[in-house]
Design a protein around this nucleic acid. Structure first.
Length: 207
DNA sequence: AGAACGATCGACT
DNA sequence: GTCGATCGTTCTA
């Protein structure tokens, strides 16, 4: 289990967002159960130059405070009154920036993720496919809310690593031909920044 | 104090 | 494809 270090998060946000593809996200619940997923989609947000970033122009408010902390912390906020989004704080301390986690592929704790997402509703093939393919869904499936905002990603409760604790899974390397980039989702209000190609994802395996 | 808005999702046509 | 839910955050006054 090669846990990603604070130095990893301190690099520039576009690089971090791209390198995070294929990494494993580990989430330990209060009960001790470990959930894990492989990162398949990210977006970069950079306060200094990005009107889509909550900390654009280094805007410092109670909500954005954690973006000014040292790299390697979790930034989790409520969106649309109902959902949460998980980010990883990047860049050297004082440069407000983060990588938004948009999607993972479940690797461990699938049953628990299903329960957290759907409760007792029946699990259809469609629901299984869409279990963790959006930022709000990921937080729901991993039981992440504002209560976890500010968590240190070098700790034991929530962190990223190159390969999960129990082997038998592929490493975090990803073939170049599966890498994609494009404009970010849901930032049409952000003037010129709406077109920045700051979304990164892994194309699904050839069918 | 009040208002506007949102880095989403799921139900529905 | 469209649309409404729902409430914390932020800004204005």
């Amino acid at each position: 289990m090669a846990r990603l270090s604070r130095e990893f998060y301190s690099q520039d946000t576009l690089t971090a967002a791209r390198l995070l593809l294929g990494k494993y996200l580990i989430r330990r619940l209060d009960c001790g159960e470990v959930l894990a997923g492989r990162v398949t989609e990210t977006e970069a947000y950079i306060g200094r130059c990005d009107k889509a970033c909550h900390a654009y122009n280094c805007r410092r408010t109670p909500r954005t405070e954690i973006l000014f902390a040292p790299p390697g912390h979790a930034y989790i906020y409520l969106i649309y009154g109902m959902y949460h989004c998980l980010n990883f704080v990047t860049e050297p301390e004082g440069e407000p920036a983060a990588v938004l986690l948009r999607a993972i592929q479940p690797v461990a704790g699938l049953d628990t993720m299903v329960r957290l997402r759907y409760g007792d509703r029946p699990l259809t093939p469609q629901r299984l496919r869409r279990l963790t393919d959006g930022p709000g869904k990921v937080c729901r499936a991993l039981r992440l809310t504002r209560a976890e905002n500010g968590m240190d990603l070098t700790g034991d409760t929530l962190f990223l690593c190159d390969s999960p604790e129990d082997a038998g899974l592929p490493g975090s390397e990803v073939p170049r031909e599966r890498l994609r980039t494009g404009p970010r989702i849901g930032v049409d209000y952000a003037e010129e920044a709406r077109d920045f190609p700051w979304r990164f994802w892994l194309e699904k395996e050839a069918q």
